[in-house]
Simulated scan of single mutants.
Amino acid sequence: MRRRTFLTAVSAGLGAVAFSGAVWHEAAASASRSLPSGGLRAGAGPYGPLGAADANGVALPAGFRSRVVARSGRLTGGLLWHPAPDGGACFADGDGWIYVSNSEVPLVGGASAIRFRADGSIERAYRILDGTTLNCAGGRTPWNTWLSCEEVFRGRVYETDPYGARAAQARPAMGRFKHEAAACDPDHRAVYLTEDESDGCLYRFTPDVWGDLSRGRLDVLCGTGGDGVEWRPVPDPTPGVFERQTRHQVAAARHFDGGEGCHYAAGVCYFTAKGDRKVWAYDTARQTVTSVYDGGGTLDGVDNITGLPSGDLYVAEDGGNMEINVITPDGVVAPVLRLDGQAESEITGPAFSPDGTRLYFSSQRGPSGETAGTGGITYEVTGPFRR
């Protein structure tokens, strides 16, 4: 919907990239270790260099292939695919699977789903949320629902059913603010939420009953000096238009410039901030927040983020050179795909199929740069991803 304007000149050389191996490895056990001197290993990533762009305009390593599964304004599985596809996730469904995708347009945004058969063919597509506005990112839950987040002033989180059987439900207890992404932490029975404001916060929602997001406590991350942090309750999670907004209600709240993607794995909540140009890591055991990527390498315009059990993180670019980069546990940052000829777009909604062999994502505006029209393209990449 918007064009990012935060991008500045990228610091030269790999020496500008900083990692914290201590949070990357064995976070739950609080083991102290660091990466080898220099932090980032130069050279190709785990899949090798990118080749020339294929017929779909996607540059991939050897052994990978792409296909287009949907285009905005065209029929996909019997559904007119929505404009401005954004955040997404995959869900197992019998011998097939489902990919859900938000629509980041005003008033009619909502979310749609594509159901794939076991052989990867499309069975059908359908709407799972209507009548909402600027649905940006979100997150899947352990009980197989999709949290669709409105990136608008006093926006809401909507809990939706990717299988299309139950009506979507607003979850105001999770806060009314400019939502971006959500990541569930089943270990601590909490949901982390990012906020796309220049002084946005990281929130933690703890439901009264795990699996029921209708009631609970909303906390905001606060600094305690250095990397140390703590959580404090937000006094009024649903402020009125002229009341103090959530990010300004607690004086000690820690602020991040443009919160974006969010992903939880092995005791760590990873989240990105486009203005900071960093990938951050909240270590739940140490109660610290540190930067695991400080820019300056091949990854720029940090945005949506996902991961696999291998420990690899996949970060999509908004701007930059339209890549998805992998960040490996041993300190490699490298592109795994690039979209050529789409400089006015952004990559959104990266999500892996349940078996980890297929990566879905969208180009929100495509080569045309159109937001509300027919520019959006949703892709599938198949290959030997490290699972």
Results as ranks from 00 to 15, higher is better:
residue 115 R to P: 01
residue 131 G to S: 12
residue 110 G to K: 13
residue 82 H to S: 15
residue 73 G to V: 12
residue 68 V to W: 02
residue 86 D to G: 11
residue 73 G to K: 06
residue 133 T to D: 13
residue 109 G to F: 13
residue 67 R to M: 05
residue 76 T to D: 07
residue 98 I to E: 04
residue 103 S to A: 13
residue 105 V to I: 15
residue 66 S to M: 01
residue 86 D to R: 03
residue 127 R to E: 09
residue 119 D to V: 13
residue 128 I to F: 14
residue 132 T to E: 12
residue 53 A to Y: 04
residue 142 P to C: 14
residue 51 G to E: 03
residue 120 G to T: 05
residue 77 G to Q: 01
residue 59 A to T: 01
residue 131 G to N: 07
residue 70 A to C: 02
residue 53 A to H: 07
residue 101 S to Y: 12
residue 63 G to C: 03
residue 137 A to F: 14
residue 109 G to N: 09
residue 97 W to V: 03
residue 104 E to F: 03
residue 126 Y to A: 08
residue 119 D to M: 04
residue 59 A to Y: 01
residue 89 A to G: 05
residue 51 G to Y: 02
residue 88 G to E: 06
residue 86 D to T: 03
residue 63 G to K: 08
residue 92 A to K: 10
residue 132 T to Q: 10
residue 83 P to F: 07
residue 51 G to C: 00
residue 129 L to N: 14
residue 115 R to I: 00
residue 75 L to V: 14
residue 55 A to T: 12
residue 129 L to Y: 14
residue 142 P to F: 11
residue 91 F to V: 02
residue 97 W to E: 01
residue 137 A to V: 13
residue 134 L to I: 14
residue 74 R to S: 13
residue 58 V to I: 06
residue 65 R to P: 09
residue 91 F to D: 05
residue 79 L to Y: 04
residue 110 G to Q: 08
residue 60 L to P: 03
residue 132 T to D: 12
residue 56 N to R: 00
residue 92 A to M: 09
residue 95 D to G: 06
residue 84 A to V: 05
residue 99 Y to H: 06
residue 88 G to L: 09
residue 86 D to H: 03
residue 68 V to M: 02
residue 140 R to N: 10
residue 94 G to D: 02
residue 85 P to N: 03
residue 81 W to R: 11
residue 80 L to P: 15
residue 54 D to T: 03
residue 56 N to E: 07
residue 75 L to S: 12
residue 110 G to F: 07
residue 67 R to H: 09
residue 74 R to A: 15
residue 72 S to L: 00
residue 91 F to S: 04
residue 53 A to V: 03
residue 132 T to C: 12
residue 69 V to A: 02
residue 95 D to K: 11
residue 74 R to K: 15
residue 79 L to T: 03
residue 137 A to Y: 09
residue 116 F to E: 10
residue 56 N to Y: 05
residue 111 A to K: 14
residue 78 G to L: 00
residue 113 A to Q: 10
residue 54 D to N: 04
residue 59 A to D: 04
residue 56 N to K: 01
residue 62 A to H: 09
residue 88 G to S: 08
residue 126 Y to E: 02
residue 106 P to F: 04
residue 82 H to W: 13
residue 96 G to V: 09
residue 113 A to M: 10
residue 86 D to V: 08
residue 111 A to N: 11
residue 60 L to V: 07
residue 130 D to E: 14
residue 140 R to C: 11
residue 113 A to H: 01
